[in-house]
Design a protein around this nucleic acid. Structure first.
Length: 469
DNA sequence: GTTTGTTTAGTCAGAA
DNA sequence: TTCTGACTAAACAAAC
């Protein structure tokens, strides 16, 4: 269950301890505003363009054009284009589950959502394991994002632009950016908590005694961030697309109904448009995907988010027979779906910002670089163990336990996590020095590693790094 | 009562 | 086949 007081995950301008506090009134105002926006008549029709706008970032994306990285307009939007002149899809329109059909909160398997225009493409999608070339996870409630929970947590942390965030903020970010989870059984939140507790990558930062609020804060273990940059990450298997069974039922029902017009609209929605194909082609050309296809890159850009032709064996959401009935969610998010404002896209990826951050030394180049902003007076809890910060001679604030973890042979981050978080809009390019997330700032990366990173991203990127150096 | 955090147990899938 | 990671489910306790 989510907190009864829904809070804006990342209130603008807020830094530090008050980062999670947003008044309910402000939230209501936001929802109100979005409700108005999404009641516009264009919402439903604009849905057809969602697949296009979700690839808008491709149009803007250019590794070769990184010189314009600092320009505000140059954001490679991971979760779809938003704002500005893009005429972004309405949050409501983008959330099909908010259209008409009664919601059945719970796991997607129990979701009763059915949107008629989704029906024509699904047979092939389900039967042949195909998936549209573009999946807007922000608006698609049927397809589970191909990211591990750890990745999602990392993405939330990175997108927050804060050094530490609360559990509820993680929830909010995920539900804000992945429609799937808005309608899923809230047990995924249990998994999130489980992941935070179990995964070494995440460090619990207890609240100060005089700090109001529930629970503590969570941050990324900088040592694991370093490991990511060192390439010591594991590959995560790609999950297949998970289609709501309810949607499939809906599909069958509509097949009988013979809604030709609706299915025609569906085809437009899920099939790859020529524009998108062109964008994809340009993207592949820009990244040398033809010769040097990097699945990690593809995954990070959510272009290979569907099942391959041979299909993945990854399990679908399973429901063992006789198990308890899906719980109804009491999450206010579901109720707010009718009016929730998704317009505030968080976690936009910016390749250029990432690169420039590295080039500007914000990814330390082994010169006693940026320090971890872990407050020295900040107590950390790792696996229930209280640890104290330690300042090393080099100025790099380390941590006893974190140093221990560095020796561990386990690497809980995978490359997907790294790439996914790396492609989030680089926060440290926009925040004050002191407010930089320490996720990467405390990491040290030598120049070779940087080149390795560049190589993994494509030759052009490496060339750019080289030329700039 | 709700939320948060920890722990245990089990299943499944991919890799070795 | 075994190992490992991801995921799910559940129980429990503590804090709010």
């Amino acid at each position: 269950m989510l907190s009864m007081s829904y809070t804006d995950p990342w209130p603008e301008g807020s830094v530090g301890l008050e980062e999670e506090v947003v008044t309910a009134a402000a939230q209501a105002e936001q929802l109100d505003r979005s409700s108005v926006d999404c009641n516009s008549s264009s919402c439903s029709s604009d849905n057809l363009d969602d697949s296009l706008t979700s690839l808008q970032w491709l149009q803007e994306f250019s590794i070769l054009n990184a010189s314009a990285s600092q320009s505000s307009h140059h954001h490679s939007h991971f979760f779809g284009s938003q704002g500005g002149s893009d005429a972004p899809s309405s949050p409501l329109a983008g959330d099909p589950a908010s259209i008409g059909m009664p919601l059945t909160p719970g796991k997607p398997t129990a979701a009763s959502f059915c949107r008629t225009p989704c029906l024509s493409a699904l047979p092939s999608l389900v039967a042949h394991g195909h998936c549209p070339d573009e999946v807007d996870y922000k608006t698609n409630p049927h397809i589970k994002p191909p990211y591990s929970y750890a990745t999602l947590i990392c993405m939330a942390m990175q997108a927050s632009k804060k050094t530490k965030i609360t559990l509820s903020c993680i929830y909010n970010w995920i539900t804000d950016n992945f429609c799937y989870f808005r309608h899923a059984d809230p047990t995924w939140q249990n998994s999130i908590r489980h992941n935070l507790s179990l995964n070494k990558c995440f460090i619990k930062v207890p609240r100060q005694k005089d700090e109001p609020g529930k629970g503590g804060f969570w941050k990324i273990d900088p040592q694991y961030a370093e490991r990511l940059l060192n390439g010591a990450y594991k590959k995560r298997r790609m999950p297949p697309v998970q289609i709501n069974p309810a949607l499939q039922n809906c599909l069958r029902m509509n097949a009988h109904a013979g809604q030709a017009a609706a299915t025609a609209g569906m085809a437009r929605n899920l099939c790859v448009s020529p524009e998108s194909q062109q964008l994809l082609k340009e993207f592949e050309e820009a990244t040398g995907a033809d010769q040097n296809w990097d699945p990690r890159l593809a995954e990070a850009t959510m272009l290979n988010c569907w099942v391959s032709g041979k299909g993945s064996k990854r399990k679908q959401p399973y429901r063992t027979g006789g198990s308890k009935a899906p719980r109804r969610s009491s999450s206010p998010l579901l109720a707010m779906d009718e009016q929730e404002d998704l317009s505030s896209l968080k976690g936009n990826f910016d390749w250029d910002a990432l690169l420039d951050s590295a080039l500007n030394g914000e990814l330390s180049l082994n010169e006693g670089g940026p320090l971890s902003p872990i407050p020295q007076d900040e107590d950390l809890m790792v696996r229930g163990t209280h640890i104290s910060p330690l300042e090393l001679p080099g100025g790099i604030i380390e941590n006893h336990v974190l140093m221990e973890t560095q020796r561990s042979s386990e690497a809980d981050f995978d490359e997907e996590t790294f790439l996914a978080t790396a492609f989030l809009q680089s926060p440290w390019s926009e925040v004050e020095e002191g407010n930089r997330p320490d996720f990467l700032c405390s990491s040290t990366v030598n120049i070779d590693q940087l080149f390795d990173l560049g190589d993994s991203l494509g030759g052009d990127l490496s060339s750019k790094i080289e030329s700039l150096l």
